[in-house]
C-alpha cells in the first residue's frame, strides 16, 4: 500500500503540538505571577510561534497542489478537522506572534528569533496588560491546536488505530510534555540567566505530572480498542507484535516516557529535600529532556504510519 501521509505530516504534527505547548506553559508561568518564573514565561513566549509556523509551512509543501493552499482560507468546513484546524493554526500563529513581540525586549543576549527587538507601544498602552490579553486569548487556542493535531487523526472511522478520542488526549499531553522538555533544555543551555532550582523543580513537576497522565491515557487506549469493534481490536496488533511494536514500546513508552520519568523523579527528590545546590550538573536535565523530545516524535511517527495501515472491516 501507499502511505498518503509521511514524514512531513509527522514533523508538522510534532511541531504544531510543541509550539502550542510552549504557549500554554508561557501562559501558565506568566499567570503564576511570580518574578522568578518570568524568564521561563518569556523564553516559552519567544519560542512558541516558530515551530507552529514552520510546521504549517511544511504542510503546504506536502499538498498535491501547493499553489492552491489558499483555498483552505476561502472557506470554513465545520465537519472537517483539517479546515477548522487550519483556521485555528492561523489564529494561533498570529496571536502567539503578537504575544512574542510583546514579550521581546532589547537584549543583545537574546538569540531567539526577534528576542532582541523592543516593540514600541503608543503612550497610554500598558505593555503587561496588552500582553496578558494576548496570553488569555492564545492559551485556549494553544490547547485547541494541541487537541486538533490528534482530532485530525481521530476523526476518521476508516482508520481504526486512530478512531478514538484517546488519540487527541494523548497528542495534547505529549505536546505539553515536549514543550516542558524543550523549556528544560533551553533553560539549561542558557543557565547564565535561568534554570534556577525553582525553575527546574517547576518543569520537572509539570513534566512528571504530564508523563503520568500520558501513561494513564495509554492504558485506556489499549483497553478501549481491545474491547471495541473487531477492526479496532485488530488494529492494536500493529503495536503488539506488528511492525510498529519496537518503535512504540521502546522508542515512545520506554525511552520517551519511563526513562525521563525516572530521571526526573530521581533528580526532583533531592531538590525537594533541599540537598542540591544550583551548581548541580545539567546532565540530568539533558537525559530527561532529550528523550522526551525524541519520544514525542516517535509517538507521532507511530500513529501517522500505523494508522494508515489499519483498516476497517
Amino acid at each position: 500500500m501507499e502511505y498518503q501521509w509521511e514524514w512531513l505530516v509527522v514533523v508538522y504534527l510534532y511541531l504544531g503540538g510543541l509550539g502550542a505547548g510552549l504557549f500554554v506553559f508561557s501562559a501558565i508561568f506568566d499567570f503564576m505571577n511570580q518574578k522568578h518564573f518570568e524568564p521561563l514565561a518569556r523564553i516559552a513566549a519567544l519560542l512558541a510561534p516558530w515551530p507552529v509556523a514552520l510546521g504549517a509551512g511544511l504542510l503546504i509543501f506536502d499538498l498535491g497542489s501547493p499553489m492552491r493552499f489558499w483555498r483552505l482560507f476561502s472557506t470554513v468546513q465545520w465537519t472537517s478537522p483539517m479546515s477548522v484546524g487550519s483556521w485555528l493554526l492561523v489564529a494561533f500563529t498570529m496571536t502567539s506572534g503578537a504575544h512574542m513581540l510583546l514579550w521581546a525586549r532589547s537584549n543583545p543576549e537574546m538569540p531567539i528569533g526577534i528576542g532582541g527587538l523592543h516593540l514600541p507601544l503608543p503612550s497610554g498602552v500598558r505593555r503587561v496588560e496588552l500582553r496578558r490579553t494576548f496570553t488569555a486569548l492564545g492559551a485556549p487556542m494553544g490547547l485547541g491546536v494541541g487537541i486538533y493535531t490528534g482530532v485530525l487523526l481521530g476523526a476518521v472511522p476508516a482508520r481504526p488505530f486512530w478512531n478514538t478520542p484517546m488519540v487527541a488526549m494523548l497528542f495534547l499531553f505529549s505536546a505539553l510534555s515536549t514543550a516542558a522538555a524543550a523549556l528544560l533544555l533551553v533553560s539549561t543551555l542558557r543557565k547564565t540567566t535561568v534554570s534556577s532550582i525553582p525553575e527546574r523543580r517547576l518543569l520537572y513537576t509539570a513534566d512528571i505530572g504530564i508523563i503520568l497522565i500520558e501513561i494513564f491515557l495509554i492504558v485506556p487506549y489499549f483497553l478501549h480498542n481491545a474491547l471495541s469493534t473487531a477492526s479496532q481490536a485488530r488494529s492494536l496488533d500493529l503495536v503488539l507484535g506488528g511492525p510498529f511494536t519496537l518503535a512504540f514500546w521502546i522508542g515512545f513508552v520506554a525511552l520517551g516516557l519511563l526513562l525521563p520519568l525516572i530521571v526526573e523523579v530521581l533528580d526532583l527528590v533531592p531538590l525537594i529535600a533541599g540537598r542540591k545546590k544550583a551548581s548541580h550538573s545539567p546532565l540530568w536535565a539533558y537525559v530527561s529532556a532529550i528523550p522526551v523530545l525524541a519520544g514525542g516524535l516517535v509517538l507521532r511517527w507511530v500513529f501517522v504510519f500505523a494508522g494508515q495501515v489499519s483498516h476497517f472491516g
Binding site: 499538498l63 497542489s65 472511522p157 476508516a158 494508515q308 472491516g313
Partner: peptide, 11 residues
Amino acid sequence: IGCRYCVLACP
C-alpha cells in the same frame, strides 16, 4: 488541494 485526507477517510 491534494491533502489526501479523503483518501485516508474512505473505509
